[in-house]
């Protein structure tokens, strides 16, 4: 057969496109359920990490999540609870006037977890921050990123960076205090966290993300 004729080329291309389209659509739709479940489990793991839950417990994320997280409330900008459940379903990047707030119990003490979402150097960064029931001090954090530079900005996802946060002052009278400053420029260590050397723009992104996302909770902090 003449594989160089015009009609052969056109038919070949058409058939190839149809086959590939069906194949991809089939793979995508048949795996959708499992993928969504994985995303959900991963979100649970992220929240648990911000509560300093050990890796061993996180292996079974679903039961650990049920054990620690009492309610996934939705609060409004005035700090009023508008729903006791359903905060988990809100995607961090789509947070507008309805703020998710996870009420958790760790060793008998109440902790709150708030989601964070912002921009790093190359792409989005996100995370969770947990704080004590007095709403004044940070209890733990979790940060992750899509494509920050390994060894530089990507260091925000390491335990080494995240361990700098617990104990810092979260806010005072509704003004967010906890912040990330340029590496080696910490003046007041009660609320300033040392940034990453060589990852200044990502560190600034974390700082802005903390400030922007937590500011929305100002009225809740003052309650």
């Amino acid at each position: 057969m003449n594989t160089n004729s015009n009609s052969y080329t056109i038919i070949y291309a058409s058939i190839m496109v149809v086959i590939v389209a069906f194949l991809l659509a089939f793979v995508s739709s048949s795996l959708k359920g499992r993928q969504d479940k994985n995303v959900e489990l991963d979100k649970m793991k992220q929240i648990l990490t911000s509560l300093n839950v050990s890796d061993a417990e996180k292996a079974d994320a679903e039961s650990a999540y049920r054990k620690y997280v009492v309610a996934d409330q939705i609060i409004d900008l005035n700090g009023n609870v508008i729903a006791q459940n359903g905060g988990f379903a809100i995607e961090s990047k789509k947070i507008d006037n309805q703020l998710p707030l996870y009420v958790c119990k760790v060793d008998g003490e109440t902790k709150y977890v708030a989601p964070l979402y912002g921009a790093g150097l190359w792409g989005p960064i996100w995370g969770y921050i947990s704080f004590n029931s007095d709403k004044r001090t940070v209890y733990g954090t979790y940060f992750s990123h899509e494509g920050e530079t390994p060894g530089l900005g990507a260091e925000i996802a390491t335990a080494k960076f995240q361990s700098r946060f617990p104990g810092k002052v979260l806010q005072e009278n509704g003004t967010v205090k906890v912040s990330v400053v340029k590496n080696g420029k910490v003046v007041d260590s009660s609320y300033e966290v040392d940034g990453i050397s060589g990852g200044t723009i990502t560190s600034k992104g974390v700082d802005k993300m903390l400030h922007d996302c937590l500011s929305k909770y100002a009225n809740f902090f003052n309650k």
Binding site: T3, T9, A13, L23, L31, R34, Q35
Partner: peptide
């Protein structure tokens, strides 16, 4: 077909990569 061989190669690679990435996600 010789004239669209690069396109065919690209489609095969892109389809393979997409399928692998979907399977990994699941």
């Amino acid at each position: 077909p010789n004239r669209i061989r690069i396109i065919v190669q690209l489609v095969v690679v892109a389809a393979l990569v997409t399928i692998v990435s979907q399977v990994l996600k699941a």
